[in-house]
């Protein structure tokens, strides 16, 4: 536990920076993180990168209609045929 609250712990800084994406940090947590980030440029970069990762992930979802970023993610011809066959079997009058 002492390691966690050690003000020099970059690991704990990254934990808090990540948790801050999901919920509002408590005042003690915010103060701890602010002090650490003020003196650690690597964690400032790391925290920015984690925010960038979230932003990019949302863009990735928005791009599924146009395949942006999801290269090669298409149904195989075999699977396509299997699904079409399954649908045909379910349709009345066929």
């Amino acid at each position: 536990m002492w390691r966690k609250w050690n003000i020099y712990s970059c690991r704990h800084a990254m934990e808090l920076a990540s948790i801050g994406h999901e919920r509002r940090l408590g005042s003690g947590e915010r103060l701890w993180l602010a002090i650490h980030l003020a003196m650690c440029s690597a964690c400032r970069a790391g925290a920015r990168q984690m925010r960038a990762v979230d932003l990019l992930a949302r863009k990735l979802v928005q791009g599924i209609g146009s395949s942006a970023g999801v290269n090669g993610a298409t149904l195989s011809p075999k699977s396509r045929q299997q699904i079409a066959d399954a649908l045909s079997r379910m349709q009345p009058g066929r």
């Binding site: 020099y8 712990s9 704990h12 690597a42 970069a45 990019l56 992930a57 970023g69 290269n71 993610a73």
Partner: peptide, 28 residues
């Protein structure tokens, strides 16, 4: 709890669609 390899500052222009596409592929 110190970084073994320090994170670098990223130089990304979000407006550059070519870079963004490359980024999204890498993220996937």
């Amino acid at each position: 709890g110190k970084w073994k390899t320090l994170p670098r500052r990223w130089h990304i222009d979000p407006q550059d669609s070519a870079i963004e596409s490359e980024l999204l592929s890498a993220l996937h």
